[in-house]
Amino acid sequence: MAKLLQIAIDGPASAGKSTIAKLVAHNLNYVYCDTGAMYRSVTWAAIQKDIPLDNELELEKVLDDITIKFVPSEDGQQVFVNNQEVTKEIRMPKISNNVSTVAAQVAVRKYLTDLQQKIASAGGIVMDGRDIGTTVLPDADIKIFMVASVKERALRRYKENISKGIDTPLAILEQEIEKRDYKDSTRSISPLVKAEDAIKLDTTNLTIEQVIVKIMKIIEKKA
């Protein structure tokens, strides 16, 4: 029986991690774990309770009373927080612009890292995020670090937002992504960095199909 692998895909905001990770998991018949949605879910729950997003003690109370669940659907995957569907809500700008603050809190990272490690313990998992290869799954069999230019990532986010009826100017999105990059890469806890043994993949000028082909070749070679 072939070994079930742990595959970590990291990178900055809007590098295409989630889209690629879902497709890779589908190709391999593996479980896909959207760690970003977990942090977004905690952020959403905290905002609903009007809790200061940098108040770790108050956020711990949110963690004590939160259940995050992923449910497969025809459109991909639905996200539920305490049995309420929040799939679209957690992708709104208010969440995107605040999730880095929540993700920087030690209690939040520990809670979700423990949960993610438990999910991945049996292998057969594709997990994407910002610290998967460095912190969550440091011994992952395959580590990919996806990057793309700020301009390209902003354009991708713009197109995604338009499809959801969100009309944020492209220039604003570029500013938000640059700010998010800074927050993610300079935070003291599990900052966004490329793991030493990760393979860097620049997707700026690549189609989704081309990225998938490259990653599948990496998996076949390493497996």
Rank of each mutant, 00 (worst) to 15 (best):
V71C: 03
Y39N: 02
S73N: 14
D54S: 12
N55A: 11
E60I: 11
R40D: 06
A45G: 04
N55R: 06
A37T: 04
L57N: 15
A46W: 05
A37M: 02
I51L: 07
L63N: 09
L57C: 11
A46E: 04
T35V: 10
M38A: 09
I51Y: 07
Y39R: 00
L59P: 06
K61Y: 05
I47N: 07
D54K: 14
S41C: 04
V42Q: 01
K49R: 14
L63V: 07
G36E: 10
V71M: 10
E74F: 12
G36N: 06
G76M: 05
K61A: 09
K49A: 13
E74V: 15
I66R: 02
W44G: 02
K61P: 05
S73V: 06
V62R: 04
E60Q: 14
D75G: 09
S41T: 02
D65S: 13
T67L: 13
I66W: 04
E60N: 11
T67P: 04
A45P: 03
Y39L: 01
L63Q: 10
V71W: 08
T67I: 14
I47R: 11
D54H: 12
T35M: 07
L57D: 15
I68P: 01
D50M: 09
M38I: 05
E74K: 14
D54G: 13
A37D: 02
V31M: 15
V42K: 01
D75C: 09
L53C: 03
D65N: 15
P52H: 08
L63D: 07
G36K: 07
I68A: 09
D75V: 12
A37F: 00
T67C: 10
V31R: 15
K69M: 11
D75Y: 14
K61T: 10
E74T: 13
V42Y: 00
V31A: 15
D65T: 11
I68R: 04
G76V: 10
W44S: 03
P72G: 07
Y32A: 08
W44L: 06
E74R: 12
F70A: 04
D64N: 14
A45D: 07
